[in-house]
């Protein structure tokens, strides 16, 4: 009682404490009821995702421009007298590089779609990325209206990207496989040993994955390819996840784990495919 009386007298701390209590209630309510969270999420995402899409495209153009700066400097040094011409040509070149890169990427994606004709794929663009450094979540520009649902697998031509966390009508959140909260049933392609691929958790370095629950006697070597096993029913079987970088015994010596280098470059993720299901033969 004395404590409460003192607290009420010292109004400076009342506001933070009230805020903390409200925050705990909000966490509790929104984590237990996805519907409440969705009701709050939808209007914000609907209002801001078109702007995110435009800014995301702008970001890609800026990155490409920055990539061409060293080249520009080199050419300027070598061809002083042709400066004007070179800068003009570079401008064209920049466009061409961009189109070539885009063309190659689209060809790869098209090739991937043709190679994976058994899946019903939906192409999507990455429009935003989680701002914090702790989680790995991206937003894509396709949602429920395009037939995308929670837990669908997201891939590129290089391999598995992650799975759908939640959806709105026009966008979806994708949890990347590097996120600490992610786990995917997987197997070593050569030895057929099964395990679970988790995100970046101890002792996997940043950007790498940890494959756990591997049999103690599994004969793994560096470079072994890791694919999804299809167990659990979320991710279809046979999608490339990455390759073994190193293996170690667990401290209790009953299992071993492997550090996996993902096959997808998550820092340069621009376009992805969502696997909506399998096509009927």
């Amino acid at each position: 009682m004395v404590f409460l009386r003192r607290l009420l007298k010292n109004r400076r701390w009342l506001l933070p404490i009230a805020f903390l209590i409200i925050a705990i209630v909000v966490i509790n309510v929104t984590s237990k009821s996805q519907q409440v969270f969705k009701n709050i999420e939808i209007p914000f995402v609907a209002a801001l995702s078109p702007i995110q899409k435009v800014l995301s495209d702008l970001g890609i153009s800026i990155r490409d421009t920055i990539d061409t700066v060293p080249q520009l400097f080199y050419l300027k040094q070598e061809n002083e007298e042709l400066k004007q011409q070179v800068s003009e040509l570079l401008q064209y070149k920049q466009y061409i590089i961009e189109y070539q890169r885009e063309n190659q990427e689209l060809r790869n994606l098209l090739g991937f779609r043709e190679r994976n004709f058994q899946y019903d794929l939906e192409a999507a663009e990455v429009i935003a990325r989680e701002p914090s450094n702790w989680f790995n979540v991206i937003t894509i520009d396709k949602g429920e209206r395009h037939g995308i649902r929670k837990d669908m697998a997201v891939v590129t031509d290089k391999g598995l990207v992650g799975y759908i966390m939640s959806t709105t009508a026009e966008t979806s959140k994708v949890m990347l496989i590097t996120d600490e909260r992610s786990s995917v049933s997987a197997m070593i392609q050569r030895t057929r040993d099964n395990g679970i691929v988790k995100g970046t958790i101890d002792p996997a370095p940043s950007g790498y994955l940890k494959m756990v629950y591997l049999p103690y006697d599994a004969n793994l070597v560096k470079g072994d390819e890791v694919i999804s096993s299809g167990l659990g029913g979320l991710i279809p079987k046979g999608i490339v996840i990455g390759e073994v970088e190193e293996t170690n015994k667990e401290s209790y010596e009953l299992m071993q784990y492997a550090i996996i280098k993902p096959s997808v470059d998550f820092l340069k993720l621009e376009r992805v495919f969502v696997i909506k299901g399998e096509r009927e033969a």
Binding site: V26, I27, V45, V137, T139
Partner: peptide, 20 residues
Amino acid sequence: FLEDVFFGRFIGLSAIAKSA
């Protein structure tokens, strides 16, 4: 709050951390 709404699984994690 914006961070939680767009990328979180519930509201409060980033809102608490950033405001505190």
